[in-house]
Every structure is written in C-alpha cells, then in structure tokens.
Amino acid sequence: MVDPVEFAEAVFKTSKLLVPTPSPTPSVSPIPTVIPNVPHYERVGETGTKTLWVVFVLMLLSTLAFVAMSWRVPVQKRLFHVITTMITTFAAISYFAMATGDGNSYAHIVVKEAHKHVPNTIEHVFRQVFWARYVDWSVTTPLLLLDLAFLAGMDGASILVAIVADIIMVLTGLFAAFGKNDGQKWGWYAIACIAYLVIVYQLVVSGRRAVMSKSNSTSKLFASIGGFTLILWTLYPIVWGIGDGARKWSVDAEIIAYAILDVLAKPVFGFWLLFAHGRNATAIEGFWSHGLEGEGALRVGDDE
C-alpha cells in the first residue's frame, strides 16, 4: 500500500531533472523528453457514499428486528437467531466504518503500455480499496456457513473444512485487491476461487447427505436457501473481477453491486431462515440454555 500523496510529491520533485534546459551549444536533433504522467485516482464518490449509509441503516434495522424476533422464542431455540443477529451486527459496523471514511486504503497499480515509435508509457493508478469489507466477510461468511451447516446437521469435520476454506477465500481476495501487478492479482484470485469450490463441495455433497436425515420441510428449505446463497456467493468474485480486477467499473459501481449482494446475502437470508425455521429449530439444552448449573462450578472451600 502506497500513500498516493507522497508518491505524487516524489515523482514531481524528481521530474524537474527530466525537463531539457537551454544549452549554448546547438544540437543536431531534439532529444526526446519523457515527463511522468499525473497519477490517476479511482475513489468513492457521492453516490457510493450514500449507498454505504443506506446499507448501514438497513443492516442496523435488520439487527434490531432479529433481536426482537429472538425474544419471541425460548432460549433453547435461539441458535439461528443469535448467529443471524451477529451477521448483520458485524455488517452494520463495517458499513458504518466505510461510510464515515474509515477502513480503506489505496492499491497502487502500474499500467505499462508499449509503443512502436515512441517511448513506452507508464501510468500510475491508485484505486481505493475498502479493506473493512474483507474484515466483515472474514467474520460474517463463516457465520453464514454455520447457519447452513446447523440447518443441515453437517458433521464437525465438514464444517471445519468449509470455514477454513472460507477464511482462505476472503484473505486471498484481500491480497488480490492490493496486488501490484497482474501476476499477483490474478494469482491470488485463482486461489480464492479454488477455496470457494471447496465450500461449494462441502455444502452440496456433505450438506445434502446430512440433511437427508432431516424432515422433508427442512430438506427443502436447505436446498432452496443453500442454492440461493451459492448463487449470490458466485456473483461476488464476478463483481470483484470486473471491479478491482479488471477495473472496468468505477469504485461507486463496485460499491453498489456489493451492497445489493450484501443485503440479499445477510438480511434477506436471515429473515428467510428465521421465518421458515426459527420456531421449528431443534431445542438445545445443557450449557447453551442453562449454563454450568451446579456441575463443574467452583465452590469456596473445595480442596481441588
């Protein structure tokens, strides 16, 4: 990550040496001079900022709604309510940070163009990257996977593999966003896509196998909401490839695309899951509902 202001000052300070000065001795032919290009900045605009504020409000209102819904069911059946509330809570924090100007930095991209009869040109591009979005995804997407895994009744090994693959996918996506050249950028992107395929395998194969032992309504819900999630998650790398990857979209267009996907993948997903399955969830007893009770509690005067 390079500070674009410091970079511009350094370039234009040294560029004076490249400008030809008058010479008392006449030259036979003019000497070609290369003057550095002005750095190009790709940053959020008014439309993108307003979009970030709108999504923050939606995430906040969804969080409050999920909290209210959790109060209407006994604590034994609040597992999905708690997880879903956490998802929109972290998303609201992330969007508040981005909307207020925090959680972002500039990726320095060097664009080289070769020419036949004139010197090659080099363009320095500084594109604004919201790393707060990746922090959000590193927390919320594993929680989304837990919702789906618990709905299907997946085994612990499959859940662990899916969550680790998910974290790898998000982190390599962040590395790709700050890649200095095409090799780094698309190399990290390819690793992220491979990790995503691991997640797809765990949900489609392991998840489908596990949910077969559930009721017919639960199986249908997992198939529909799981398919909905996978379609949305497939669109994320496409948006990244067009936006941060190929830079065909402006930062504002990228923000709008991610905002639509985040609203569908988090609040809409949460309301769908809780309305369809919240009251029918399996009751969880033990520590989740009653704490340690008397067992395992430390008492004053115990020898051990």
Rank of each mutant, 00 (worst) to 15 (best):
F7K: 11
E9G: 12
T14L: 14
T14S: 13
V19C: 05
P20F: 06
T21W: 00
P22K: 11
P24I: 02
T25V: 15
T25E: 11
S29H: 08
P30K: 09
I31S: 13
I31P: 02
T33C: 10
V38F: 10
Y41R: 13
Y41I: 15
R43N: 08
R43G: 02
V44S: 03
G45F: 07
K50Q: 11
T51E: 03
L52Y: 01
L61V: 13
V67F: 09
A68F: 09
S70G: 08
R72N: 15
P74G: 05
Q76A: 10
Q76N: 09
K77L: 11
F80R: 00
H81L: 09
I83Y: 07
M86T: 02
T89D: 08
T89M: 14
F90V: 14
A91E: 14
A91V: 02
A92D: 02
A92I: 06
T100Y: 05
T100C: 02
D102W: 08
D102E: 13
S105D: 15
A107H: 06
H108M: 10
V111M: 02
K116N: 08
P119H: 07
P119R: 12
N120I: 02
T121Y: 04
I122Q: 06
V125D: 05
R127M: 12
Q128T: 02
Y134C: 05
V135P: 01
V135Q: 03
S138K: 04
T140N: 10
P142M: 12
L143Q: 04
L144H: 09
L148V: 13
L148P: 09
L151T: 12
A152V: 06
G153Y: 08
I159W: 05
V161P: 01
A162D: 11
I163P: 03
V164H: 03
D166A: 13
I167S: 08
M169W: 05
A177R: 00
G179P: 09
K180T: 12
D182K: 03
D182M: 06
G183W: 07
Q184H: 06
G187F: 07
W188S: 13
Y189G: 12
Y189V: 05
I191V: 15
C193M: 14
V200T: 12
L203W: 01
L203I: 10
S206M: 14
G207I: 04
R208I: 07
R208E: 06
R209T: 08
S215T: 15
N216I: 10
K220M: 15
K220Q: 14
S224K: 11
I225C: 13
L230A: 06
W233F: 14
W233E: 15
L235Y: 03
I238C: 05
V239F: 03
W240R: 01
I242M: 01
G243F: 06
G243R: 01
R247Y: 06
R247E: 12
E254D: 12
I255P: 02
A257N: 07
A257Q: 05
A257P: 05
A259G: 11
L264M: 14
L264Y: 12
K266R: 11
P267D: 03
P267L: 01
W272S: 13
A276P: 00
A276D: 07
G278A: 12
N280Y: 01
N280S: 15
A283Q: 11
A283T: 09
I284W: 07
I284P: 04
E285N: 15
G286D: 07
F287G: 03
S289I: 10
G291I: 12
E295Q: 09
L298I: 15
L298M: 09
L298C: 00
R299F: 09
D302V: 12
